[in-house]
């Protein structure tokens, strides 16, 4: 087993875990954490691809590395924006649920059915 195999399996597992967390946790903050976990797994995919492409004296293909650095920064901005939205929602509404009961429940049928 090489590093590529070990971490490749881990990356896939992290993606699975992140997806599960993103779907099932009800709290938005936990969703954001799960998204970051998911993101780290996806970035590791790039790392593994790059590691396999080690050549010309580099242990890791520099192109995927650069893509990951860009991706990490984008993911961080997304986290910051999501957190800001969440905190503002909490400030205004006093709760952070994503389901608004008023708007979400199917309205009673006005034609009497």
């Amino acid at each position: 087993m090489s590093a590529v195999t070990v971490f490749g399996l881990y990356a896939a597992a992290a993606v699975g875990l992140g997806l599960y967390g993103l779907i099932t946790t009800p709290q938005p903050l936990r969703k954001i954490i799960a998204f970051n976990l998911l993101g780290s797994g996806v970035f590791l995919l790039f790392g593994i691809v790059g590691r396999r492409g080690a050549a010309a004296g580099f242990g890791n293909d520099p192109v995927p590395q650069a893509l990951v650095i860009t991706g990490v920064v984008v993911a961080f901005s997304a986290t910051a924006l999501a957190i800001a939205l969440l905190l503002r929602l909490f400030q205004i509404a006093g709760s952070t649920t994503l389901n608004s009961r008023a708007a979400a429940s199917p309205r009673s049928d006005p034609s009497g059915n």
Binding site: L89, I92, L98
Partner: peptide
């Protein structure tokens, strides 16, 4: 309401 919509959209 719109903050909630935006957060859903973003996620």
């Amino acid at each position: 309401e719109t903050l909630r919509a935006a957060l859903r959209y973003l996620l």
